[in-house]
Amino acid sequence: MDLNYIDYISISGRSWLHRSPAGFKILFLSAAVIILLSATSWRLPAIVTAAMIAIAVSARLPLKLVLTLSLYPVIFIVIFLFSVSGLTLSILATVSLRIISLTLAVVIFFLSTSFPAVFAVLGRILPDFLVTALFFTYRSIFLLSDGFADIYTALHLRGGTDFRRPVFTLSRLGMALGHFLAHIIAASQRMAENLKLRGFHNHIYYLGKRYE
């Protein structure tokens, strides 16, 4: 799953959906979740699914990405449903549509709302430490994925990946992984140093557009 790409679309998008306030979208998403969880027939989830696809199209989100991301959970549903006895078409349709429409809503939300915006809303309702932890998780994912991409590129450029020689490649990958661990430790040390230098005490401020 290409996290960078999701993040990029959510930031660079300029559609009506991207521009509408994150708070509204969160409310809307919560409403959709409640409605879908209480739905007992397949009709309501089907309508929501259609509506979500219409929203995705009108917001010019990359439809292929939206659909692939939303279909991930279907694999689990299929496995789960095989263990259910007395399966009817109606149960199958209701359960799958419910889950597909739910993931659709979540995927569309994250593709159209940048993390800082989500974070600004969360900052007003959740306790500080939780928001800070969430934020660092988000930042670290990018620091780490960049770090790993760099190390993998280096490995590749310097002839460490040769898939005709799996044992060799695995040993090189192992080395790269070791290096990656060292990288993580050094990077987190540097991050801690910077937090100290810049006076961090458990709160990330988000100015947003409030002072413009």
């Binding site: 800082p116 540097r190 937090l195 006076g199 961090f200 005490h201 990330i204």
Partner: peptide
Amino acid sequence: RSRIGAVMQNTDEQLIGPTVLDDVAFAPLN
């Protein structure tokens, strides 16, 4: 520390705020 400004050799981990504006404002708000 509020009287010292620092730019480290490795700036990747120096930027902490959610956006550039927030990052620049990070230390004074702290």
